[in-house]
Computed example of a mutant assay.
Amino acid sequence: MNAQQIKAEQSEIIARASIGRLSNERLAETWMLTNGQPAERKVTILRGWLLDEIETRMERATSVWGDLFPNEMQRDRFDEWLTADSAPGNDFISPLPYLS
């Protein structure tokens, strides 16, 4: 691994840790701010990291809900969010309601 790859790996670790410390509200806001941005490399990478954190939190919330109500059929929140229809006139759905 060369110096540039090591620096990139360290930067990713720092970025993912920073994203992991965001509140649900700030995470959703950051995601929404990236919507509609040009598909440049940096934006695409950031959106991937944000999606990973959103999915992790939604899976955790689904797991907790299932533990509280084991007889209820739980749909995966992440899939539900990804397939949600946007409100009229709105291109994107905030993940915030699915995070809580």
Rank of each mutant, 00 (worst) to 15 (best):
R47D: 00
A17D: 05
I14N: 12
A39Y: 03
I19Y: 03
I14A: 08
N24Q: 02
G48K: 00
W49Q: 14
I14P: 15
E40Q: 14
I19M: 01
T44H: 10
A8G: 06
S11T: 10
I13R: 11
A39T: 10
Q10N: 12
S11K: 13
K7L: 04
T62G: 09
A8V: 07
T44C: 10
A39C: 12
I6H: 08
T56I: 07
W49G: 04
L51E: 15
E9L: 04
G36Q: 09
S63W: 14
I13G: 09
T44I: 11
Q37D: 02
R26F: 14
S23L: 01
E25K: 15
M32W: 00
I54Y: 08
R41K: 13
V43N: 10
S11H: 04
V43P: 04
I54M: 13
E59T: 10
I45E: 15
E40F: 08
L50W: 02
Q37E: 05
W49N: 09
L51T: 15
E25L: 12
T62S: 14
L50I: 10
R57W: 03
E9C: 06
E25Y: 05
S18L: 08
I6F: 06
T56Y: 06
L46I: 04
T30A: 11
T56K: 13
E29G: 04
I54W: 00
L50D: 02
M58K: 03
E9D: 13
N24W: 05
I13Q: 15
M32T: 05
A39E: 08
R60Y: 07
L22V: 04
M32D: 02
G48F: 03
L51S: 13
I45R: 11
P38S: 04
Q37W: 02
E25R: 11
G48E: 00
W31Y: 15
R21V: 08
R60D: 15
I13P: 14
E40D: 11
E12P: 12
I54Q: 00
L22H: 01
L46F: 01
T44L: 09
E12W: 02
E29S: 14
K7I: 07
K42A: 14
K7T: 09
R26I: 15
D52S: 12
G36V: 01
W31V: 05
R47S: 06
E29Q: 04
I54N: 05
S63M: 07
R57H: 13
M58F: 01
K42G: 10
N24D: 10
R16P: 12
M32N: 04
T34W: 01
A61L: 08
G36C: 01
V64H: 15
L27M: 00
Q37I: 02
T44D: 10
A15Q: 03
A28M: 11
A28D: 01
K42Q: 12
